[in-house]
Design a binder for these strands. Structure first.
Lengths: 154, 154
DNA sequence: GTCTTTCGTTCGACTAACTAAACATAGATC
DNA sequence: GATCTATGTTTAGTTAGTCGAACGAAAGAC
């Protein structure tokens, strides 16, 4: 078997193992999986507009409006009108939103951390290096995906 | 910053980069994300009962029944009564289901493969080793999660 | 041979996610 | 200033996923 295949299989196993908990992860944060992704995106970008989020998630703007409505009602995000362009509505995390994010990763953290700490020093170092490498490889592949049509534009 | 933190951050980046495409991955297979997971589970276990799938996905049996109904109508899976225990309904992938699976991973594959092939030999070897290691760590953490209550049992 | 448990299913119902289309408002262009 | 374009929203509707409860049939216990 080719090395690349072994790699991909391992990657898929990693994905599956964690994806399994995507739902639980979100629930532990008091959110739905999709809502958690919105919150994660906001955490990265600091403040964003609805349209930007829509593009990143590959959904129609109307979908984001509905989603932000819910997150606003639950107190996780806040809308504030933009002063530079008054058509835009800026969306930002509230403290509650940031707290939810902190609670979310615990499941993954706890599962991985215990085993990781038990490893030899050199092995830990190697894992860190490789995971970073792979992350960069995948992130890079993601970069050219910024401008994408809405599903409805197809 | 602790090494474990670097690790977790990298892991989350990997997850996010690929998770982003969970939907597209499924769509390229002509399935919804949840349906794809059912198909994946069936591909692993060969043949399974509804209850087993329900437990693995942490959902109620009724949910699986509905899902299998859809997958059966679309021709991806087939039901066959069990001869050993006639209460059970065995569920198996059809050829169409297996084909769908083959189409699904292409997106991830193509993105990762190109960059991977360009790496030095020793680096490839290291990545393979580490990814396998991490996969085992996460799979193992998953193993003791076999017997879980239905959501409704809580 | 009854009693209990297990298995999948049906039914009715709810929620989340998502969309297209129409709309109001605000920049941009000329 | 009139026209085009971009932005977010409302509305009305769809689809997928999910569940609890009730159910029938089969297996297991005793």
């Amino acid at each position: 078997m080719e090395r690349i295949d072994v790699c991909l299989i391992a990657l898929r196993r990693i994905l599956r193992a964690t994806e399994l908990h995507g739902k639980e992860l979100a629930q532990s944060a008091g959110l739905t999986p999709v809502q958690l992704r919105v919150v994660q995106i906001l955490a990265e970008s600091g403040t964003s507009t609805g349209g930007a989020i829509a593009k990143r998630m590959h959904v129609a703007p109307a979908t984001i409006t509905a989603m932000i409505d819910k997150l606003q009602r639950s107190g996780h995000v806040a809308r504030q009108p933009s002063h530079i362009d008054r058509r835009q509505t800026l969306i930002a995390l509230t403290d509650k939103g940031r707290e939810a994010l902190k609670r979310a990763p615990d499941a993954l953290q706890q599962r991985f951390a215990a085993e990781f700490e038990a490893l030899d020093d050199w092995e830990q170092a190697m894992i860190v290096a490789v995971l970073e490498r792979v992350a960069v490889m995948l992130d890079a592949g993601d970069a050219d995906r910024g401008a994408v049509l809405y599903p409805g534009d197809l």
